[in-house]
Amino acid sequence: MGQTINGVLRRHGLILAFLVFLGGVAFNAPSFLTPGNILDVLRQVSITGVMALGVTFVVLTGRLDLSVGSLLTLLTVIVVDQHNFAGPFPAIVMTLLAGLAVGAVNGLLVGFIGLNALIVTLAMLSFLQGLVLFYSGGANVNVANAQETWFAVFGRGDFLGIPVPVILFLVAAIIAGLVLQFTSFGRRVYGVGGNETASIFSGIDARWTVFWTYVVSGFTTGLAAIIMGSRVMGAQNTIGQGYELTVLAGVILGGTSLLGGSGSIWRTVIGISMLGFIQNGLLLLGFPYYVQWLVTWAVIIIAVWIDLGAKRGRIFA
C-alpha cells in the first residue's frame, strides 16, 4: 500500500503539486477557478500552445527548434501588413506558406544536411530577426481597419461563449494528437526519435521524417501568428522575442524528453497550460509578473528531475 502511494507520488507528483497549487490559489483568490478566468488563462496560452504543438513534433525526433520565436514575429508582421495590403484571406494564406517555407529550410539543413539542430535554428533565429527588420523597415505595423475586419475573429472572437483562439488551440491540439497517435507519420516520428538507427533499418527515411516535423513546426507558428496578429491588430519587431524559450519550457514541463521518442501532445497541452495557470495564479495573488519566472525555473527543474529519477529508479545520477 505504502508502495502504491509512493509510486503514485512519483508518477503523478507534479500534477498533485499542481493541484495543490491550484487549490491554494483558489482559496486565496476566489476568482481564480471561475469559468471566466479559466477561459482568460486559456486565451493567453493559446498562442504559445499552438506553437508548442509543432515544436513537440520536432522535439519528439530528438531535435530542437529555437527559431519559432523570431518566426512568430516575422509571420505576425507579415499577416498584419498583408492584411492592409492584400486583404485578410490572402494574408492568412501567405503567412501559412511563409511558415511552411521557413520550416522547410530548417528541415533541409537539419534533416538532409545533418547539421546540429540547436545551431541551425539559432542561426535561423538571427536570420529571421534580420528579415523582420528588412520587411518592416523597423516600423511597427498596425491593421488599418481593426474595428471592421472579420480577421478579428481569430484573436478576439467568441463562439458559444468560448474564445475562438482557445477553440483553435484545442482543435489544433486534437488534430496534432491524432496525427501523432494514429497515423503512420506519427509512428515514424516516434520511431526516429526513439531509435534512429533501428528506424532506418526498418525502411523509414529519417531525413524526410525530420524534415516534415520542421514543416509542421513552421505551420503551427503560422497559425499562432494569425491569432497573435488578430488579437493585437498590429505587430512590433520584438513581438515574438523569447517565445521559443517559453514554448520549449512548456514542452519540457509536460514531460516530453529532449532526447526524443517519448512525450505526447496532451503532455504539451498540460505543460503549457500549467505555465499559464501558474502565471495567472501568481498575478491574482498579487505577485508581480516576473515572479512567475522564478516559479517556472523551480517547476522545470523539479518536474524533469522527478521524471528522470522515476525512470532511473533513483534520485541522484
Binding site: 540547436l118 524559450l245 520549449l248 519550457a249 519540457i252 529532449l258 532526447l259 508581480p288 516576473y290 515572479v291 512567475q292 519566472w293 522564478l294 517556472t296 525555473w297 523551480a298 522545470i300 527543474i301 524533469v304 528531475w305 528522470l308 529519477g309 532511473r312 541522484f316 545520477a317
Partner: peptide
Amino acid sequence: TLVALSGMHSFIVTLGGLIGIRGLVFV
C-alpha cells in the same frame, strides 16, 4: 550542481536558469 546531481542535460537546467535568474533580477 543541478547538472551533476540530477543527470539532467545542462540545456534544460540552464534554460530554467535563463528564465528564473531573469526573474531574480526583476525581483
